[in-house]
Amino acid sequence: MSKPLVSTVPTHVAIIMDGNGRWAAMRGLPRTMGHRKGVEAVREAVRTAGDLGIPYLTLYAFSSENWSRPQDEVSDLMGLLKVFIRRDLAELHRSNVRIRVIGDRVNLRGDILPLLLEAEETTAANTGTTLCIAFNYGARDEITRAVRALAQDVADGRVTPDDITPAAISRRLDTADIPDPDLVLRTSGEERLSNFLLWQAAYAELIFVPEFWPDFDSAVFQRALDIYARRERRFGGVAAPASRAVGGA
C-alpha cells in the first residue's frame, strides 16, 4: 500500500460502517449488493489497520436494532457474515489477526454463535491487530447488562454500593480487556453514534467522512487518520499524548 500519511496512529479505531444501502440505491442496485460490496471494504479496512500497526479495530457489523429490518435483508446480512467467517477466517489467522466479538450472545439463533465462537477460538493466540466485531450490539443494552451484573453482585454481597465506580462498570462491559477507542469514525456523512460504544467513546475523537462504506478504502482511512493526528486531545484537562508512533513499541 502507499506510504502512510500520518506519523502517529491511534491504538484503537472504531468504525460505524454506514451507507451500504444508499450506495446501492445510487447505482440502481438492490440493497443486498451494497452489503456485498461492503464486505470488500471490511477486508480493506482490516488490511490497512494491519499495515499501519493499529492494534485494535472495532467494526459495527450488526446492531441489536437491525433485527427490525426487512427479513430478506436480515437473512442476506447473516449469510454474508457466515461467508465472511468461513472464507476469510483462514486468511485472517495467517495474518496474525485476533478476532473478538462484542454484543449480546444470549438470543443469537441458528449457527451464527458457533461460527463467531470458532473465529474467536481459532485466533485467540494471535498477536497482531485485534479485529473486534460488534454483532447484535447496542451500547445501551451493553451498559444495562453491566449494571445488572453489578446489582447482582451487590445483592449477593460480593461488592458494596460504594464499590460501584466507573472502573467497576468498565470491567463488566463487553470490551473489558480492550482499550477505549481513540477514534470513532463513521462513513456516509451521517453524524451520530447510533448507540455505538457510548461509554467507551466518552473521550474519543469523532470523524465523519462523506464516503459510503463500500467506497471506504485505504486512502479514505489514511485521510481520516491524518485528521486525527492533527487533533489535540485533552481528556477534560491539559493536552496529553494519546497516540503511538508508527512502528513504535
Rank of each mutant, 00 (worst) to 15 (best):
M1C: 12
K3G: 06
L5A: 10
T8D: 09
T8P: 07
T11F: 12
T11Q: 15
V13R: 15
V13T: 15
V13L: 15
V13E: 15
A14E: 02
I15G: 06
M17Q: 06
G19K: 09
R22C: 06
A24T: 00
A24H: 00
A25I: 00
R31S: 03
R31K: 14
R31Y: 03
T32H: 02
H35G: 01
H35D: 01
R36A: 10
K37I: 00
E40K: 11
A41H: 00
V42K: 04
V42L: 07
A45W: 01
A45P: 03
T48F: 03
T48S: 15
A49F: 08
A49P: 06
I54K: 03
Y56H: 13
T58M: 06
L59E: 05
F62N: 02
S64A: 15
W67F: 10
S68D: 08
S68H: 14
R69K: 08
R69S: 02
P70Q: 08
Q71A: 14
D72V: 09
S75E: 15
S75P: 07
D76F: 15
D76S: 13
L77Y: 02
M78V: 01
A90R: 14
H93T: 10
R94C: 12
S95P: 05
V97K: 10
V97H: 11
I99R: 07
R100M: 01
G103I: 07
R105I: 09
R105P: 12
R105F: 14
N107G: 11
R109G: 13
R109W: 05
D111N: 14
A119H: 08
A124V: 11
G128L: 09
A134Q: 14
A134S: 14
A139I: 03
A139E: 04
R140L: 07
E142H: 11
E142W: 05
E142K: 13
T144F: 14
A146S: 03
V147G: 05
V147E: 08
R148Y: 10
A151K: 05
A155G: 08
D156K: 13
T160H: 04
I164Y: 01
T165W: 01
P166C: 05
P166R: 02
A168L: 00
A168H: 00
R171G: 04
R172M: 00
D174T: 03
A176V: 08
D182C: 09
D182Y: 09
L183G: 12
L183V: 13
L183P: 11
V184S: 12
E190P: 04
E190F: 01
L193K: 03
S194P: 01
S194Y: 01
N195Q: 08
N195Y: 07
F196Y: 06
A202W: 12
A202D: 14
Y203A: 14
Y203H: 15
A204S: 15
E205C: 13
E205N: 14
L206K: 11
P210D: 11
E211Y: 09
W213C: 01
D215P: 02
D217S: 02
Q222C: 06
R223H: 07
D226G: 12
D226P: 05
I227F: 12
Y228H: 12
R231A: 10
F235Q: 13
G237A: 10
A239F: 06
A242R: 13
A249M: 08
